[in-house]
Amino acid sequence: MKFPKINFDTLKNEGTKSVTAQERRNFLKLGLTVAGVYAGGKILSLTSVIGTAHASGVGFVEKYPYNPHYSMVIRQTLCIDCEKCVDACKVTNNIPDYGYRTRILTKKYTGKLDKQVEFIPVLCNHCNSAPCVRACPTKATYKDPVTGIVRMESKKCIGCKTCMLACPYDARYFSAERRAVDKCDFCWEERLSQGEKLTACAAACPTGARTFGNLTDPENIVYKLVHQLEEQVWVLRPADDTKPNIFYMKGNMRSVDNILNEQRFKYFDPDKI
């Protein structure tokens, strides 16, 4: 196959006058489309973390699958590893010594100017597509149809421990006392079902690292923390695509305080320029 030879040096300049307005418009449109795709991609990449973090689907969803859709936002840098949450959980839910429903992981850094260590509280993520619920042969573990809490029906548990391995968050252990696998139920049995508003761990947290609430309520702190663009929100192990309901963010940021105080444009208030 031969390609036609084009000698650019001898090409005549046609000038811009010969380009019609329609052609011009089409060209601009094409450019905008290309730019728009990139811009859109950029925006998506900014928001996509929240998209995957979100309880359902991509982007800011209007409707969550559960109501109240219980969820927890962990403001990671506020955690001081005092373990009051772990103790409160143990006392409230009668956890044996060899088990835990929540724990705090330590991540160490070197060469950082502000801090050397970060603490990451972990617990059951109450995933919307929970691998443990799929894996259980007898439906002993299930998504609560109202609240979305992943709960246990202990009498059905045969103790095959498949759920413990299916869980990508190590949130389960076998409790010899219950003769069943035990896990976090957002304190449903001990607190929420009795009218309390917070889980034991969230109530015990002295720094506000654990904030618990209802993701469907626009007035709720959890809703406000998740539904903003200013600060990054993420989930653990997003690649497993379990659609978890425990969200993580850094903690001591002014912008979040602004959101909570509804001062959305503090830094870029057009009236003050």
């Binding site: 007898t138 059905k156 045969i158 103790g159 095959c160």
Partner: peptide, 13 residues
């Protein structure tokens, strides 16, 4: 001897 509650298995399966 691995399943913790083998008797429940027969029922709830």
């Amino acid at each position: 001897f691995d399943i913790e509650n083998p008797f429940r298995m027969a029922i709830w399966n």
